[in-house]
Nucleic acid binder design. Structure first.
Lengths: 246, 246
DNA sequence: ACCTGAACACCGTTCAAGT
DNA sequence: ACCTGAACACCGTTCAAGT
């Protein structure tokens, strides 16, 4: 809510890499990734931007550290989960782990964007994946199939899906194209809601039915949690079939 | 390779939104997304950065336009594909479309990052999805299942997977943590190659077997194309089962 | 109508200087 | 050992001014 400086908490406590990273998480949680500047993080700590460079090498170092912090938060949540029993216990266990990891990402909506390209650098992420591999191994998977499985799950293994297209978003976006040209060059003029049915008949048909089936979902909202679980179970069930066929 | 200015192609041709976008694609293709600055795009056109603002509203407008340009390139490739025949023709058709789309992304490695958050604004992307929906509808899918399917496919529907963790990347990254603190706070010290086996036994076991099975893949490289197709087929096969069970 | 020079606010980062 | 002021190079963007 308010910075330490504003609260009058003078910088008695010395800075540290750890305090810098925790401050960075707070800044990103409040203002998103684009608000995460060296100056803003320093302000959060009641210090100057230049002081951060004594504890982190550069901004990218903070981003790497952020991945590690969030992955550690995931590991904390995941390692207190109950152990799998027999049968398809592997699937329940993996499912539970992934869904708890997802809860962490729901608390830090900026995190997927950072994980997307920096997950490989974090030991905590490796630890998380090590747990997944162990669970699948215990469930009777070959290492080869586990390897394919991790690729197939992609970011879903970590608990987020990052979908580029949300069916139900109207085209054109928040603001109109702007500029004098008008024509988008490669594209037709921005279609309004009615015109869309003509240009994208199948899409319009699908959306109409979805809205009809669930009137609560005004303007084409989707249940993210249900869709995430649908996709997850589709993949896990497919993998289970392959596991048994060996 | 060289800018128009360097080549001596004086800015006789007036600027336009279209030329700006095509120049932006060239800049991103050559230098990646971080090299895409207003000044650099202008330079590519032999103009000044300020001149761009007569044809685009702001930089975000360029990014939206970029999505549309690449999506149009995908549509061009995809709409010349042969029509599906009977049986599970829907699957072959969808598969072909997605794999051709993927080829476009291989030519523009920066594009997934932009699509990730801006795909909804592009009419060309809508057009692409409209095609997918039509194909699945013809294949006997309900709109409801198509809707789930698009969420389950996620970015794979567009032809890219954007995996946050590539099994085989060593931890620690290109450069060491830096800074005086040493300890990463939440994480153990950076494990070297041998120590990794102790800290991440399952991961190490998996990687050892993969490297053993395919000695060509020195240092844990994976066949991206094969993994993409594995995940894609896993999902498409699962969907086909659900389609038949209705 | 189309383009630009000068200028502004804001970045990340360096470095010599403070305590 | 730890922090900072001043400064630099580089962003996106505005605006009055040129043709």
């Amino acid at each position: 809510m308010s910075t330490e400086a504003e609260r009058g908490v003078r910088p008695r406590i010395p800075l540290s890499r750890d305090r810098v990273l925790r401050a960075a998480v707070r800044v990103a949680d409040e203002g998103g990734l684009e608000s995460l500047t060296m100056r803003r993080v320093a302000e959060e700590l009641g210090a100057e931007a230049m002081s951060l460079y004594y504890h982190v090498a550069k901004k990218e170092d903070i981003l790497d550290g952020l991945v590690d912090v969030i992955a550690a938060e995931i590991n904390d949540a995941v390692e207190t989960l109950p152990e799998p029993s027999g049968g398809t216990g592997w699937k329940t266990a993996i499912r539970r782990r992934i869904l708890s990891a997802r809860e962490v990402f729901l608390r830090h909506p900026w995190a997927p964007g950072v994980f997307e390209e920096r997950a490989g650098a974090s030991p905590a992420v490796l630890r998380y994946y090590d747990g997944l591999v162990g669970l699948m191994r215990d469930g009777g998977f070959s290492y080869d199939l586990i390897h394919h499985a991790l690729h197939a799950l992609g970011s879903r293994a970590l608990g987020f899906s990052q979908e580029p297209f949300a069916p139900g978003d109207g085209p054109g976006g928040p603001d109109s194209p702007g500029g004098p040209g008008g024509g988008a060059g490669t594209a037709a003029p921005p279609p309004d809601a009615e015109q869309m049915a003509a240009q994208f008949p199948h899409l319009a048909g699908m959306m109409a039915e979805i809205v009809h089936d669930d009137p609560d979902s005004t303007l084409g909202w989707c249940d993210d949690q249900a869709e995430f679980e649908f996709g997850l179970d589709l993949i896990l069930d497919g993998l289970d079939g392959m596991r048994q066929r060996r």
